[in-house]
Every structure is written in C-alpha cells, then in structure tokens.
Design a protein around this nucleic acid. Structure first.
Length: 666
DNA sequence: ATAGTGGTAGTTTTT
DNA sequence: CTACCACTAT
C-alpha cells in the first residue's frame, strides 16, 4: 500500500484529551496569557513572567490542571528554588484539587538530585549512604587534601581554602576546566595552576573514595548518571513525565543540561522565569540559559506575562525605569491596572544609625496605621548591612526574623555534633572524622591524619581508636564509646542519637567555649529538629540541603507574636512580596557592591538585584541612603547615592530628608 | 607533635 | 573585626 494521493488520512486523537469535565473553569480564574500557558499539556514551553505577573499562579494551576485531566500526580516533577517554595505551591494545588497533590515530587535541583542519586547512584559508584558536604565541609576537605598531598609549603601568596573552594565550585557550575576559570577570574593566582590542578584532582578523588558529595557534585554526578546509565535515565524520565521548572533564569548550564537529559524522552517540560530577575551568576547561573531554551528544545511554545498584579503604578514605573539601562533581555514592560498609589520615597539620612532609627520609627508608625508587621520587610544587599538595624529593632521591642546570612548550622558547636553523627552514618567520612578527632585532647593535625588512614580501611574503626596509646588514649576511648553508643540506638531515632552524643560532647563544649550556655540552647534546638525525623540519613541530608533559613537569633527567640517583621537579603527575598518594603544602604560601594565595579556584567547583575528588591513592594516603598559612612574596605567615606538612582527621573520618587528632633532644616 | 600566641590579610549573594 | 595562618614554647 503506497501512500499516494488517494489514501485517506485518519487522525487518532491523543489519549490525554479530557475525558471528564474539568473541576473548575480555568478561563474564569486566569487571564488569557496565563490560561494559554496553563493549557499546554505536551511539549516544551517557556513562560517569561515579569515580576508579580502571576508566575506562581501559572505553575499552580498547571499542576492542578494536569492532575484534573487524569495525569498521575506522582509523574509530575516540580523544580523550584527552595523546598519551601515547592511546598507552598503544592499546598496551593492541594487547595484547588485536594490531597492528591501530596504525591507530586517537588524540591530544588539539589534535593531532587539527592533522592535520585541515593536510589540509582550505584552504577556510578555512589552508595545510598553517601554524605553531603556543605560549603564549610568542602573547605575543610580542601585543607585536608592539601596537607595530605604535601602542597602545604607553597609560599606566601597561595590562595586560602575559601578561595580554592570557590574556584573548584565555579569550574563545576560553569562546566569549564580549571585553567580557564583560573585565568579569567583568578588571574592573580595564575602561577599556581600546577599546584591547584593537582589539588583539584586529589579533592575529586578523595570525595569519590570516601562517599562524599559536595553541593556541586549533586548536580555533576546526577548529570554523569544520566549520561552513562541510559537505563537509569530512561527509568527516571519515564517516572517524571511532566516537568516544571521555576526561576529558570537562575539555573546554570549544568542544571540546564540535567533538565535536557531528564526531559529528552518526552519533552514535556515547562520552564518559567524572568530574565530581568537573574541574580545568581556568582553561582554560574546565566540568563543565557533562558534565552537559549527554545534552541535546546525546538518547537518551544513561548508565553509572556506582562500584567503585574502586585504593585501600584508608581512602584512599577520606578522598576521599569531601573530596568531601562539593562542590555540584553526579552523585552517586556510591566503594566498594572492598580491605582497610582504613593510615590516611592527616596530617603536621605545622615549615617548608619539614623538610617536604622528612621526605619524602626517608620515601621512602628505604619503598624499604628494598620499595616501588620508581617506585611513589611527590610531588604539589603549583604546580610551584615542589617547589623545596626537589628540592634535598633531589639531596643524597641520590634519582633523580627532575619533571612540569609549566618546560619545556625554554620556555628562551630552544631557542626561538631553533626560531624559525630555523620561518622556513625558514613564511617568513610574523613572530613567529619577529622573534625571529631581534633576535639579530642592531645590529638592534633598529624595524629588525626595518621589515625584516619587506618580508620577508613579498618573493618572496626572503633577498635582502632581504642588501640591508641599515649596522652590521648583516654580521649580516643571515650570517643569510640560515644560513637558506638550512638550507633546502637534502637530503631535509629535521630533524637535519641543526638541525645546520647550530647552526653559525650557537653564536657568538650564547656572546655572549649566560655559562652557555652548559649550554645547548649542551640543544641537543644537541634534535638527538637531531630525529633521530626525517623532516620539519621534523612535528618542529615535535609539539614545540609534545606537548612532552617532563619539565623541563630531568630531560632532562639520563640514566637511571642505570630507577627514578625522580615529582614532579608535581596537574594532570599526572591519570589516574595510585602505591602511595605524598605531597601536600605543604597550607597555606591554597598549597593552596588564595590566588588562588582570591575566588570560590566556584575554591575548589570546588581542592577537586576535592585529591580528584584523594588518589585517586592505592593504598596509602599522606601529607599534609604546614608550620605556619610566610613567604609573600612576602601578606607574612604562613602557618600554617593547608588548609581542606579542617577538616571531615575526626579518625578518618579519623592525625596525625603531626615533631621533630628529639634534641628533646623538644612 | 600539640597547643597556644601573635600577626596579618580579607571581608557578598546560596544550594 | 574576625578568621586564618605561621610561628614558638611546651
């Protein structure tokens, strides 16, 4: 039978077409652009969504609609920037269509990679019990490896561990060889190319030997798995037949590649993002990614959401203006049907403390006027910018939470405790062994290293500890007993394990730190967290992948009020909104940060950062800049308002000046 | 070999 | 100001 002109063509309809009535009228609840995006079922799709344009709404409704049409919730994979975002979205899906949404798989790239690698990683040499290294652990490992490979006597200007870890991370995230990254971004260390290359090889091979996985490995090794193990790739791809990726502008090449491989079989992938909000290039993210998506997936359907439902016209006008200077973007201009509203205030204050006092006073005033505290936020470029304000707010009894900055898990005592637990879970974890051993009286770098070479090859590591003689014999025996006791907890309840370990650790803690009562409270908090988990592996993995995003002070203060002001870095404020937003420290050198002055790209990123900050506000926006601050970094007085405000027409903002009570106007 | 001391360099944003 | 490194006394 040849298919000549006479043959009749009969088209079979797709099975996914709705066979039952949809549970709701989607057209009623979405605007036409949103609806169009939601109605895509198969094939690649790209949604360019301006700030506040209902990006989350599209994702939520799309998931709901897929399930509504009979797609198995367990075959939907929702990749978001934080696990919290995933949970929030799935919660909203739940409100639309009920508890089936619980079966949707959601989380960050890293957390999804964690799950997949534990399940399928054996073919690439990963045991399910591998340990995840956080940033600090990676740095410790760099040092450890450096000592082991004898690269420690290298002269005075050898980069420090943090820099080295940064360098390795950048290589992984941009998929570039060390040489390229070193010469373009760290050219002043060019002379150490040889040593650094050796160090990197040792770092990589140690991780493999010891079942250690750093943040970047979660992605690189998942990619490796999907590349070398075609069967695993097919299996995974068949499970997650519908993929949705949020905040796509902040993914890097590595993540894009993972998406491509995961979706290669079915190509049912929708990514959502806003090129103007790309703020993670320091992590290798490139908004090129979002620009190139249609090339990666030919046949991509593209949707643009430009109507903003969040902010007043005045706020939006300023945001649009800030963006005008941006060079490369999918052009779009946000509009709103909301009223004009109040013009954003550009507030000039004398110095750091008057800025803090202004913010605190204004916040109390707004609360009097009926704006709840949790509808207000103060945003800043770097977390230390808020120190003075934190003091001021505490003085005035304003309850707040701080996001970003120093984390609970990064404190030495918490890391100490976790190190012991990690040994129990993965006896090959030399980073944790080293940390724990150094806490033993009489054990130093050398002894620790010697012991570790025996420990990792021994069938009975605790016996190795007991055999040691000399000054540290007793300490090592105690350590062995403690670890054994933790390992012997019946049904492995993490809370009980933490508890047993603390019996051993408290004396060490008291010996080491004068301020131990404070630290004991942190550790008690760790116990509370452990109670939520049934096994150690999940507890440890969650802790590194999704650390409590509130800093130490916030954790210590119990919720007296539900209503708390939010202090946040702009990076952590991504995707959130408040009725009233303060952006502080709009001073050249702080924002944009002086570290960004070097390259045009980095400056552009700072500009987008300001755009993100401004578009968080629904109704009120205050931008403050102190005119006279001494900056230790540059040794100069910062006095110039942020350059991003230079071109803003005066009509878009309302200039305020702040004076002390009783002082005349200037 | 360890632990305590003193000097110095670097100081963002996150999984 | 702090964390990190190198040095020195035990």
């Amino acid at each position: 039978m040849d298919s000549n002109a006479n043959s009749k063509v009969y088209v079979l309809k797709r099975a996914e077409a709705p066979v039952r009535p949809l549970s709701r009228d989607y057209a009623q609840e979405l605007n036409p652009q949103q609806l169009a995006a939601v109605e895509v079922v198969d094939g690649p799709a790209l949604v360019i969504a301006g700030a506040g344009s209902g990006k989350t709404r599209v994702l939520v409704y799309r998931v709901a609609r897929l399930i509504d049409m009979g797609v198995d919730p367990a075959s939907i994979l929702l990749l978001t920037f934080t696990r919290k975002a995933a949970q929030e979205m799935l919660g909203r899906v739940g409100l639309l269509i009920g508890p089936q949404s619980d079966r949707v798989m959601g989380g960050t790239f890293h957390s999804v990679a964690n799950v997949l690698l534990r399940r399928y990683g054996r073919t690439i040499g990963l045991e399910p019990g591998f340990t995840i290294l956080d940033r600090g652990d990676s740095e410790d490992l760099v040092n450890l490896v450096r000592a082991q490979t004898g690269l420690t006597e290298t002269g005075k200007r050898f980069p420090r561990k943090k820099t080295i870890a940064d360098l390795f991370s950048k290589c992984a995230n941009t998929m570039q060889p060390l040489e390229d990254v070193l010469l373009t971004e760290y050219s002043h260390f060019g002379e150490y190319l040889g040593e650094l290359t050796k160090l990197q090889e040792a770092y990589e091979s140690t991780k493999r030997q010891r079942q250690l996985v750093d943040y970047d490995d979660l992605l690189t090794r998942l990619r490796e798995l999907l590349t070398v193990d075609e069967q695993a790739r097919r299996t995974i791809s068949a499970i997650y037949r519908y993929m949705l990726v949020d905040e796509y502008q902040d993914t890097n090449r590595l993540q894009a590649d993972v998406v491509r491989k995961l979706a290669a079989t079915h190509e049912n992938v929708m990514v959502v993002g806003d090129d103007s909000q790309s703020i993670y290039s320091f992590r290798g993210a490139s908004f090129q990614n979002i620009m190139e998506f249609p090339e990666l997936f030919p046949g991509t359907r593209m949707f643009k959401l430009e109507e903003n439902y969040r902010s007043t016209q005045s706020i939006l006008a300023l945001a649009n203006d800030i963006l005008k200077g941006a060079t490369e973007k999918y052009s779009k201009t946000l509009f709103t049907q909301k009223g004009l509203g109040e013009r954003p205030a550009l507030v000039e204050v004398i110095g750091e403390n008057s800025q803090s006092r202004f913010v605190a006073q204004k916040i109390l005033e707004l609360r009097e006027e009926g704006v709840p505290l949790d509808e207000m936020a103060v945003l800043f470029r770097s977390s230390f910018h808020a120190f003075d304000l934190e003091i001021e707010l505490t003085k005035r009894d304003v309850p707040f939470v701080k996001r970003g900055g120093f984390k609970f898990l990064e404190t030495a005592h918490v890391k100490d405790v976790l190190a012991h637990l990690r040994i129990v879970h993965n006896p090959l974890d030399t980073v944790s062994w080293n940390r724990s051993l150094l806490l033993v009286d009489g054990v130093g770098q050398k002894r620790s290293r010697d012991l570790m070479t025996q420990l990792v090859v021994s069938e009975a590591p605790y016996e190795v500890l007991r055999q040691g003689g000399g000054r540290s014999a007793l300490g090592l025996r105690n350590l062995a007993a403690a670890l054994e006791s933790v390992g012997n907890v019946e049904d492995g309840s993490p809370a009980d394990q933490v508890n047993r370990l603390l019996e051993y650790y408290y004396p060490i803690l008291k010996e080491q730190y004068d301020d131990y009562p404070k630290r004991i409270r942190d550790l008690e908090h760790l116990m509370v967290m452990a109670e939520r988990y049934g096994d150690l592996e999940a507890f440890l993995a969650d802790l590194t992948l999704e650390p409590p995003d509130e800093s130490v002070t916030a954790i210590e203060a119990p919720d007296r009020d539900d209503e708390r002001l939010v202090l946040s870095t702009i990076h952590s404020a991504k995707g959130l909104e408040w009725r009233c937003v303060f952006v502080i420290w709009l001073v050249d050198g702080r924002f944009p940060s002086s570290y960004s002055f070097l390259t045009e790209e980095e400056l552009e990123e700072e500009r987008r950062l300001l755009y993100v900050a401004v578009t968080r506000a629904k109704q009120f926006l205050y931008l403050t800049f102190p005119v006279q601050v001494y900056d230790k970094v540059t040794g100069s007085v910062l006095s110039k308002p942020s350059r991003f405000l230079d071109d803003v027409p005066a009509s878009l903002v309302e200039p305020w000046s702040v004076v002390e009570h009783g002082e005349p106007w200037r």
